[in-house]
Design a protein around this nucleic acid. Sequence first.
DNA 1: ATATTATTATGAGCGTGCTCATTTTATGTT
DNA 2: AACATAAAATGAGCACGCTCATAATAATAT
Lengths: 190, 190
Amino acid sequence: MRISVQAKQENRARILKAAVEIFTVKGFDATTTRDIALASGLAAGTMFNYFPSKETLAMTMVAEALGQGRSDFVHRRTGKEELGEELFLFIASGLRRLRPLRSFIGPVFERSLSPFPRRTVCHEGEAARLEHLDVVQEIISRHGYSEAPDYVAMTIYWSLYLGILAFWANDESLNQEASQSLIDYSIRMF
Amino acid sequence: MRISVQAKQENRARILKAAVEIFTVKGFDATTTRDIALASGLAAGTMFNYFPSKETLAMTMVAEALGQGRSDFVHRRTGKEELGEELFLFIASGLRRLRPLRSFIGPVFERSLSPFPRRTVCHEGEAARLEHLDVVQEIISRHGYSEAPDYVAMTIYWSLYLGILAFWANDESLNQEASQSLIDYSIRMF
DNA sequence: ATATTATTATGAGCGTGCTCATTTTATGTT
DNA sequence: AACATAAAATGAGCACGCTCATAATAATAT
C-alpha cells in the first residue's frame, strides 16, 4: 500500500505524541512498543517502519529538543558573554527544551549517549553528541583559545555533560536548582 | 534438594568462570544466560538462583576486581604521594585488576554504575560505587582538605571516573596509554 | 532403614523488543 | 474502468532475560 507523504508524516507525529504521553505515565522501560503502536492506531510491527528501535524513538525526541535548544541559544546569545557564561547558556538552553521529557528520559541518556561503540548504534544519539560538541568547540575557539580544543578535553567535557544530564533527570529540587549548581561547578572546573 | 556448601560454592565459581570465558569470546550482549548455564553444567533457570540477573553476574566480577584493586592500592601506597599521584595510583590499581574483563565489560559500565535510581537496582554496582567514593574521600581528606568533599564534588568525580572507565574499555592504544593520559588530565582538572 | 523436611535444580512458559513473509492499497499506466 | 506496480501495514513468530510451580535430593529425625 502506498500512502501519501502527508499521511506518513501524520503517522510519525502520532507515534511521537503517543510515545511521549505513555512514557510520561508509565516510564520508559515499562512502556512497551505495542502500547505505543496501538495508541497510534497502528499494528505492533508498523512502528518499526518509522523508528528502528524504541531507543531511537526516544533519542529522536532528545535530538529534536537539543536542536531547538541550540537554535534558542544561537538567537539568545549576545556574543559578549564570558566563556563560562556562554557554556552555561548553551547547556541551560538544551535542558529547557528537554524539560517535557525529564520524567522518563533518564534511562535513555544512560544508554544512548556513550561516545563509544555499542552493539546497536543509535545514529540519533551519535549525531546529537557531535552537534553538541561542535558548538562547544566553536564557543571555546571564539574565546581566544586559538588552537581547537583537543580530543582529551572534549572527552572530559562529554563526561561532565553526561553527568549533568543524568543528575538533572533525577533532580527533584525546586526548578532543578541543584542541577544549576552542578552545571556551575562543572563549567568552572572545566 | 539440599547440596553441600562446598557444592554450592563450586557451582558459583563454575558460573563465574564460564561467564568470563563466553563473554570474552562472544561479548556481553551476544552471550545468553542459557549459554552460561549450560556451560556451567546447570539448567537454564538455575543460574538465577546464584545471580539475580545477567547484569549482576557481570557486576559481581567488577566488584571483585575493584575490591582487589583497592587492596593492592592500600598495600602499595607509601603515604607520601601527592594528592594527584595517590588518586592516579588508586584508579590505576582498579584498572589493573579489571584488565581480564576489559574486552567485554564496557556495556556493563554504561548501564550499571549510574548513581541514580534505576528500574532494576544492582546492589553490586551501588556498593562498588560507594566503596570507591569512600576511598577517594579519605584520600582527599588526608591531604589536608579538612572539610569532607561535598556532594557536588563527588558527583563530578564520579562523572569523570565513569568517563575514564568507558574510555579505557574501548582504548585500543598500546597498554592503554591513551587512558593513562586521560586519567592524568582528569585528575589535574579535578 | 525409613520417613520427614528443608533447600536446591529444573525447564516450561511469559512478556519483551524486534523481524519478516505476506497482504493490502495508493498511485501510475493502458 | 481495469490492471500493474511499488511501497507500506500487518501480525505471527523468534530469541532473549527472567519467573515460578514442580520435581528432586541431601540432611535430619525417628
